[in-house]
Amino acid sequence: MKFSLGPVLYFWPKKQMQSFYQQAAESNVDIVYLGEAVCSKRRELKFDDYMDIAHMLREAGKQVCLSTMTLLEAPSELRELRRYCDNGEFLVEANDVGAIGILNDNKLPFVAGAAISIYNHHSLRRMVNLGMQRWVMPVELSGDWLGGLLNESIIQDVRDCFETELFSFGHMPLAWSARCFTARSEQRHKDQCELCCIKYPDGRVVDSQDGQRVFVLNGVQTQSGDRYNLINQLPSMRGTVDVVRLSPQSQGTFEWLHKFQQNITGAAPQPLEANDCNGYWLKLAGMVQHLD
């Protein structure tokens, strides 16, 4: 079982990003995803900065993948996407079908991100034929769904051609919109957002009127209010999940990476925190925290 760090989904200052990836280089993580996947207006790090970090991580022995934008609308965003796809060195995580098209046209392999709608074995099989080397399944799917799908006969002869990766820790991306909800929360229009999301390194929390955590606003992305935490489900992933993904949080990411790595076989289970959830993997509503 390998561990990965997903792309930083929040908007952090350049220094914080560099320090985070320095820690990543020194950590026991196997795979690191890099790049802006949420909003093209966030430019603390530019493409060349990401490539510098990618080289540093590769020299530290990490496998590096470049993550691409999920909601692509403007022609300028497609041009930036092409730069990522044409990087010439690193595997690319496609978070939109447009990226798969470009990578396939260039005969390049790819990782299919969790926002690509692959829900069944026939779609998965087609993606393998198009060059998919790793599949991050949609966050809303369960362990049973994954297991059943991988058991289908048409997957057997290509099962060695791709890895499976599971979003296992962090606030889950649940939706994308043209509207920027962080700007809206400050009564600004997106055009005049002044990149206000840089003030919220873990997004902005949304509670119900009776105090239940509901969502986290992260620019155009809406995340789960609760933090997904599958640390105690790691033993049940054996045989179906090849890579366990932790989504960077502003605090404690590497401590949790360590705890996850200690609990691969179930030897070091951890108590969940009040705002942790694990429902999706257990075939329940995503927000549910189920205690074994």
Partner: peptide, 17 residues
């Protein structure tokens, strides 16, 4: 208001999307 086909808000809350 969300990109259709990529919205999991409903299953997050109810299990069905």
């Amino acid at each position: 208001i969300m990109v259709e086909g990529r919205c999991y808000l409903s299953s997050y809350m109810t299990g069905e999307s």
